[in-house]
Write a protein that binds this DNA or RNA. Structure first.
Lengths: 252, 252
DNA sequence: CGACGGCTTGAGGCATTTCAAGCCTAGTGG
DNA sequence: CCACTAGGCTTGAAATGCCTCAAGCCGTCG
């Protein structure tokens, strides 16, 4: 994998090795990255949906606005994330996507996806893998919402984010940059901002998590995982190719 | 679509018309349906995952058992539902699937799916559509968990189930069979059984919902949708083929 | 008939929310 | 360099939705 590979190819290589032909196919289809400022709405609920995106730089989030003016944040996107692929089946966007920082995004029209389906079953499998991965994340979040209290929810979110950041090599072992306000975390976890603040306070007293501005420090990562009852299996899905040995699951 | 079409073909025809060649391809790959009794575990978390299934008859549910012995039910499956497709990306099952009634299921090995990817981009698109559909359902449930109170959760679940049953032609306008105990609904919605009972009691007093054994009667479906703040867009994703006119969305 | 699972009802308790006020801190303009 | 401001965060107090525990009821099945 050379540095000149696109963000997309880098992302895909994560799941399985790509042939040069597949790389070529992907590169041919890719439109050049677009730069956008923090706070940019990439698309909104109801917009026509004809393409998906890969976030090559920056942070973003997907959300849904409710009738009462509140919003539920559905996903926090970090570099390398595929965004809006699940809306392939729909004519209009279901969710709104907004950038949190200055970002770069590559767009891929759905009709190019059809070409991929026609030409490479390896890439098709990979897209399926990504979709399955996304579904596993969503499922885990559903459980998080339904079954855990505020401390567990927050611990789970922090630990999951740490893992995802490490996976893309964007943080060291126990410190992550997290450009999210408590308001945003509240909207993500379905908890009031007041209670997010209190929960962080508890973690601080326990020496579990220290949050200073955009940085979160986690002295004992394992302890945090225990609070969250975190089971990392759902993050580890790779592509099941005969040539590939099963991956180790990083269960905690 | 002839009555001799498999459960799978019937399910797929729902999203887009199939050519005879595609039908033939699907039929060729399909293993004969398997009959199982109520309460049968089709697979469990941790089992090797090498195939997915289509439920052709009966009810089932997917769930995840928690460390404390409780469980979160992730999905209720009705006839025509594709089960376990999201685990394509994983070597082992993430979720447990159990039948609720006497059921019939058709299994499809993942390697057959690869053949479909090789031979028909229409079917590939369809599988993608199904995956996207499933993701939309999950997202909606996430919102349901995070943002709504017990009455809204229950109303939303009932309304969604009514819609899904109507879609497969398995119920009339305001009465559905629902072979789920209150315990099960509680585990699905993340609410205690006691509170499920009380919430049904409130609905009964309001004349909104009457539950008698396995049957649920909803005199005013629209009123229920209002309680749930139900927006049906997420149920309506079809395949975006150039030849196909956009579907009407049944927003309430 | 007796037993069991599923449902209902009551009372008390707890996690989280809401409302409200005050505090830090970064950024701005004089 | 210092006031001023605004947004984000913290803290307290009261309210509430849901949970837990516990007892009783009802219908089904052996």
């Amino acid at each position: 994998m050379s540095p000149s590979d696109s963000c997309f190819i880098r992302h895909f290589s994560h799941f399985a090795p790509l042939s040069d032909r597949d790389k070529h196919l992907l590169k041919k289809l890719e439109v050049n990255p677009v730069s956008v400022n923090a706070g940019t709405t990439l698309w909104e609920t109801g917009d026509p949906a004809g393409r998906f995106g890969v976030l090559s730089q920056g942070w973003a989030f997907s959300c849904r606005y409710m009738e009462d003016g509140t919003r539920q944040i559905l996903d926090i996107h970090i570099p390398g994330d595929v965004i809006g692929l699940g809306e392939y089946a729909f004519h209009h966007r279901l969710n709104t996507v907004v950038t949190l920082t200055k970002s770069e995004i590559c767009y891929f029209p759905h009709k190019h996806l059809q070409e991929v389906f026609d030409e490479s079953s390896t890439l098709t499998s990979l897209f399926f893998t990504i979709a399955g991965h996304h579904q596993a994340l969503l499922t885990e979040r559903l459980i998080n919402m339904a079954r855990r209290n505020a401390q567990q929810k927050l611990a789970h979110f922090l630990y999951e984010t740490l893992q995802r950041m490490q996976r893309i090599g964007a943080c060291n072992a126990n410190r992550i940059e997290l450009p999210l306000s408590q308001q945003l975390i509240a909207d993500l976890l379905g908890i009031s901002t007041v209670h997010i603040s209190r929960t962080f306070a508890v973690f601080r007293e326990q020496g579990l998590v220290f949050r200073k501005r955009q940085w979160v420090e986690i002295p004992d990562v394992h302890a945090l995982a225990c609070v969250a009852e975190f089971d990392g299996k759902y993050l580890d899905g790779g592509l099941s190719l005969p040539s590939e040995a099963p991956r180790q699951s990083s269960t905690v």
